[in-house]
């Protein structure tokens, strides 16, 4: 009996002392500023102003999320409210509380917007906003804004050309960009706080209507920088997902306002 108890204790300790503790800062500071977005704030306003913020360097992993549901049983897949998650929620996990060792370090997917928001809130953080995400993702390894670089674009488009059926890389495995942030491209789609604000028409061909200015809020309906397909596709994906939906290709990371309070 004793060896078994010791073993269980060890396992317990391992669970506690495992991957980086939540207290450690998982994010980097990004100054933000004026940013020309694919999704203009208003019909005649192409520039978004992004306040300084902190962004997680890596995606939230299955292990991170498991730690969360262990302390918050209402977010386990056998207990989660139907309003907050659909049947796909955490389907890839081997049990209601354990993802399984095979995928432990991979980014958590099959999480809904509600679940992702709750996770970030439990850390005193929030989901990144679309402009924050877009600004961080515009960077390559060497440049703050690589969006006009065809090679950078093609590299991103290459991800769309691969099947979703392969195994995901472990979190933080992709090279850091200019800001030091990883995994923004080539891994998964990511939830944002204002996923419900994409306001994109279900028929993408309605974009760019010349009478834009007559439409209230059409800035959100008309995507600029038509050659920035990589971003367009992200917005298309986000706008197709309801808040309770989950997908094997959708994960998330957290952000906080920068400043005195975190």
């Amino acid at each position: 009996m004793a060896p078994l108890i010791s073993l269980l204790a060890l396992v317990g300790l391992a669970g506690v002392a495992g991957p980086p503790a939540q207290a450690a800062d998982p994010g980097v500071l990004i100054a933000g500023g004026r940013f020309e977005s694919v999704l203009p704030p208003a019909p005649d306003e192409k520039i978004a102003v992004v306040a300084p913020f902190r962004l997680d360097v890596a995606l939230v992993s299955n292990t991170d999320f498991a730690r969360f549901v262990r302390t918050r049983p209402e977010w386990r897949r056998n207990q989660v409210a139907g309003l907050f998650a659909d049947e796909g929620y955490l389907r890839q996990w081997s049990s209601d509380t354990e993802p399984g060792t095979a995928i432990a370090r991979q980014p958590v997917t099959y999480v809904s917007w509600f679940a992702a928001s709750a996770y970030c809130e439990s850390r005193g953080a929030r989901l990144p906003r679309w402009y924050e995400w877009e600004l961080a993702a515009a960077a390559s390894a060497t440049s703050r804004d690589a969006r006009r670089d065809p090679a950078w674009r093609q590299q991103i488009l290459d991800w769309y050309s691969t099947s979703a059926r392969g195994a995901l890389p472990v979190t933080g495995a992709t090279p850091a960009n200019y800001y030091g942030v990883r995994d923004l491209h080539g891994v998964v789609w990511e939830w944002v706080e204002d996923a419900g604000s994409m306001l994109v028409s279900d028929d993408s061909r309605e974009q760019g209507d010349p009478n834009r200015n007559r439409f209230c809020g059409s800035g959100a309906l008309s995507l600029e920088q038509k050659e920035n397909y990589a971003m367009m596709m992200r917005i298309a994906m986000l706008s197709s997902m309801k808040a309770a939906y989950s997908s094997g290709s959708m994960g998330f990371r957290c952000a906080t306002d920068a400043g005195l309070h975190r």
């Binding site: 509600f114 204002d194 604000s197 306001l199 209230c216 809020g217 959100a220 808040a243």
Partner: peptide
């Protein structure tokens, strides 16, 4: 809004 499936966006004005 997320629960009801309603999309909304605050404009600069």
């Amino acid at each position: 809004a997320a629960a009801l499936g309603i999309q909304y966006r605050k404009l600069p004005d």
